[in-house]
Every structure is written in C-alpha cells, then in structure tokens.
Design a protein around this nucleic acid. Structure first.
Lengths: 94, 94
DNA sequence: CCATTTGTTCTAATGTCATGAAACAAATGT
DNA sequence: ACATTTGTTTCATGACATTAGAACAAATGG
C-alpha cells in the first residue's frame, strides 16, 4: 500500500467522523457499553430516522461500527479494532 | 463545555483532516522533523499555490499547525499539543 | 389478514467544499 | 524604481454532503 493510498484510507475514516451527528452517535454507542438499536441512538439526537440510517451506513462503510441483525431489529456496536488501528486512544477520550 | 460542543470541536478537527491533500501536508511536515515553507510543502503535491494556502488556513484554524513569519517567508510546523490532546498516538502512526 | 415496528432507499432541496486563475500585498534584490 | 519571490484573497464553478418526507421492505403480533 502506497503512502497516498494510506492517506486516502485515513481521510475516509476522518471524513466519516467529521460530522457532528456521526460523532455523537459514536459517543452514545461507546458510553452505553452495549449494543443499541438504530432507533435508540437516533432517539437521543434530534434527526429523522432516514438521516440516522444514512449516517450509520457511512460509519459502517469505513468499518467504524458493526451491525448484527436479529429478526427485524438491527443491533449496532462500535468496531474497536478500527479505532485502535487508526485512532489509538481516541475512544477513551470520549 | 457541553457534550455537544465537544462533539462539534472534535468534528472540526476531523473535518480538517478529512481531505487527502491536507492529510498529506501533515504527513510531509511531520516526517521532515523541521519547519517548512508553504512552497516546499506544496511542491511535493500537485496543486496550485492558492489551494495550498487554502488548506493551510483550514489546518491553522483548528490549531493543527503553527505559522511563524520571518521577513516575507512563512514557516509552517505541526502543533503537537493539539494532536496529543485530540488524537493521541496518531502522529506516530504516520 | 392487517396494523405496527424497525429500518432502508429514493428523491429533491439546500448547503458546503475544493479548485485554479487572477489580482493583490509585502518583503527583497538589483 | 522595478522585477522577483512568497503567500493570501477574491471569484466562479463543479462536485459532493446533509436533510426530511414518502414509499418501500421485512418481521412481528393481534
């Protein structure tokens, strides 16, 4: 992997975290220390469910969160591996 | 400072690092272990000088870099304090 | 079978960002 | 004085991001 490709990957991670709603979603997930549903997380923010879905898709696409589906409900959680790899120490600063 | 204000501040930092050119500029500055001029940094990237100036203004505005003026030349450097505060361990991963 | 819950996708509107050319400003050198 | 160097600002443009509403899909419960 070239330096430029690594810069690109890092930029994608930072871009995913550059929106205040997405950052709040990460903080909420992290502080609850458990899986949460889309609706639970969205309920703490003042935005529509389609917007919540849009933001979680972006977080998932760069590997910052993980989704587990059980029946009709989807459980979200933080992907700590990605944070530790690209942003060591960041989660604990939340 | 409220949680929302802290999320906003973090989002601004991440936004500043979410562009591949700005990330390359930080990497170049960090790896040279010395102050560099705008022109030197820009010379390693393939973008116009006005674009380089635009990007450094953004990095400066969130405190990621520092500028020292000596005569007509401006010397740029990394502001390690900001990195250590918001992204501990990140610089060493570059 | 039908209403409800949970979340996704589509669409349209609006807003923000990145870019380079040109003009500008400040300091220097001849 | 005047050209040169170094960087900033202004401007126009094209590209991309964010948002909510509506329609949709899948699973559940009565």
């Amino acid at each position: 992997m070239t330096l430029e490709q690594m810069d690109k990957k890092r930029a994608d991670i930072f871009k995913a975290l550059s929106d205040v709603n997405r950052l709040s979603m990460i903080r909420i997930l992290y502080r609850h220390h458990r899986e949460m549903t889309c609706g639970e997380v969205g309920g703490e923010l003042n935005i529509s469910k389609s917007t919540v879905s849009y933001h979680f898709k972006i977080l998932r696409s760069v590997g910052l969160t993980h989704t587990r589906k059980d029946a009709q409900i989807k459980y979200l959680s933080i992907n700590k591996d990605t944070f530790h790899k690209y942003l060591p120490g960041f989660l604990d600063s939340l």
